[in-house]
Design a protein around this nucleic acid. Structure first.
Lengths: 246, 246
DNA sequence: GCAAAAGTGTTGTCCTTACACCCATGC
DNA sequence: GCATGGGTGTAAGGACAACACTTTTGC
């Protein structure tokens, strides 16, 4: 409608020759990536945070984020930030969504794109402690800098949904894990309790765990068997589920 | 790492006082929204397209898109574009994801955020035919301008997943519809065939369709009953599904 | 009366749930 | 020997898949 008023009849549209000029006419905004990196330890879901280095957010935590560089692919930027902050490269990283409220950043408008990742806390020594980088318990996370609490909530919801449909959880566990650890992980992330027998049966029937014939060590009770996840088999047999369920 | 080089030891981090200055130092990119608007007609899924007005893409189709204005909320921009192009305001519109390949736009780097929407073709007279605005069959959609084919594919995958978990499909149908129309819609979107009896049973057991005691008119065969979707009941009884399935 | 689609029920299978007891280990 | 969690089986109920015939309408 708006268009109709400014250009009433336009049967033969003028083609724009100079795309560069066109793009120059667009408003430009600063663009950042924020990474919500989840870990799991002591039966608690944790998230990797730093102290904000903005004075207005003094003492508040924020996600690991950085600007996107000129001509940098979004995914590449996310991996770069991840690597710079944690040293890890062999991790899964997924775009969740963009956040663009005009006042989300005190320095003016900044669009951010949230990425989500999961990593095994014990595989990663936090060598770079700048800005108080640390694993923060998700449950006790209250106020954050910027709109990062909202971003964390989105990413957590994304994770909860995702872990039910994809074997993401194994990225949070040691390579070898017991069924109890696996169940604790699901219970922590989904915020529910599960029947132990049914849980075991479920994974047994999927036939995606490799019994490596080892036992837990140093537990103050009967040790459980250790398993590895059979990523190879999973990749081959990814199921395409179709149904209607709402 | 980059950070370490420029500020090697930083045990007492300097707090940044001027957030505005900080943001000014960020690279800035043009930002657009592209809307993948799906409709359903003649048992085919369609998508609303225009001819690109860039000479390099002469004759190719593109999604409805526009730049995001200064200080415009992303969702607002999507709704604005939708309204400008179709006149519709009372529609559902969801962010799918951002696309940011550096060379996706011939005029230089432009980030775009894809939104997805569904609307009933017959509820909307395309009054603005600028740039050959039209409903294009999704199946016959081949090449497009920019990376819009990739965006369409993403949005279509999003839609396929989404429609199985949320009652989105009803936005594509007339307010009153027959079970046959509903089934055709699911079959077209999911690209599968469904057993008619089981499909009917499924929706009967959900008890979310209101039998409005009307029949189809002007069909060359036995007319079917017409139903409305009970949005109110659905909202009250949204089910929270928890399970592990991969 | 014929073509075309509407409408309807049953059965078997599989998946999920609920639930209770014995076993191995550390202390 | 006791505390702690590991490991197992079964029965019932619910959801889904497969499948065929009768009914109603337009022509």
């Amino acid at each position: 409608m708006t268009k109709k008023q400014t250009a009433p009849v336009l049967h033969e549209p003028h083609l724009i020759k100079d795309a560069v000029e066109l793009v120059k006419s667009y408003p430009k905004v600063p663009l950042t990536i924020d990474c919500a990196i989840f870990g799991f330890e002591e039966n608690k879901l944790k998230i990797l945070l730093i102290k904000s280095d903005l004075e207005v957010f003094e003492g508040k935590f924020s996600l690991l984020g950085d600007m996107v560089r000129d001509n940098e692919e979004l995914d590449d930027a996310a991996y770069r930030i991840m690597k710079e902050r944690t040293g890890m490269t062999d991790v899964f990283l997924d775009q969740v969504r963009a956040f663009g409220h005009p006042n989300r950043h005190p320095g003016g408008r900044v669009i951010t794109i949230a990425y989500c990742s999961l990593l095994n806390i014990n595989h990663h020594e936090l060598s770079i402690h700048d800005n108080d980088l640390h694993w923060h318990s998700l449950a006790s996370l209250k106020e954050m800098a910027f709109d990062h609490k909202e971003i964390v909530d989105s990413c957590y919801a994304w994770l909860q949904k995702r872990i039910q449909e994809h074997p993401l959880g194994f990225n949070l566990l040691p390579e070898k894990f017991s069924l109890r650890e696996l169940q604790n992980l699901y219970e922590a992330i989904l915020g529910i309790t599960l029947d132990r027998r049914n849980f075991r049966k479920k994974f047994a029937s999927m036939d995606l765990l490799i019994d490596i014939d080892e036992m837990e060590q140093d537990v103050p009770h009967r040790p459980g068997k250790l398993y590895k996840f059979n990523f190879e088999k999973y990749e081959k047999s990814k199921r395409k589920w179709v149904g209607i369920d709402f």
